[in-house]
């Protein structure tokens, strides 16, 4: 039973990591990354590390996602063209 759960969590880890990079949009990516962190927390719990699981859940899933969303918001406001690698 535990092994089946473990396999499911490992598969979800790979899938969420894959989709975090694969999605075209940035917001879906950030949500997928948040799911990745949550799955990681679950994995830590299965590996008998509740201390690390709490830390990963609060830091990875909540705070990290928050700052990712801040960054995405800051970078998606339309700006005038120019810049780039031209001086």
């Amino acid at each position: 039973m535990m092994d089946v759960l473990h396999f499911a969590v490992l598969t979800m880890l790979l899938a969420t990591a894959f989709f975090a990079i694969w999605f075209k949009g940035l917001l879906p990516s950030a949500i997928s990354l948040s799911m990745f962190s949550l799955m990681m927390a679950l994995e830590f719990y299965i590996l008998q590390a509740p201390d690390v699981a709490i830390a990963e859940a609060s830091i990875g899933a909540a705070l990290s996602t928050t700052i990712y969303i801040f960054a995405i918001r800051a970078c998606s406001k339309p700006r005038k063209a120019g810049g780039g690698d031209k001086q």
Partner: peptide, 25 residues
């Protein structure tokens, strides 16, 4: 709660501090 009871249950300074920080988020 997690911060204060870190000595005997899962948790401690980092974890509790991070949870408190989600408050502001």
């Amino acid at each position: 709660n997690v911060v204060v009871h870190g000595y005997a249950s899962p948790g401690g300074g980092f974890q509790g501090g991070a949870i408190v920080a989600t408050f502001i988020a």
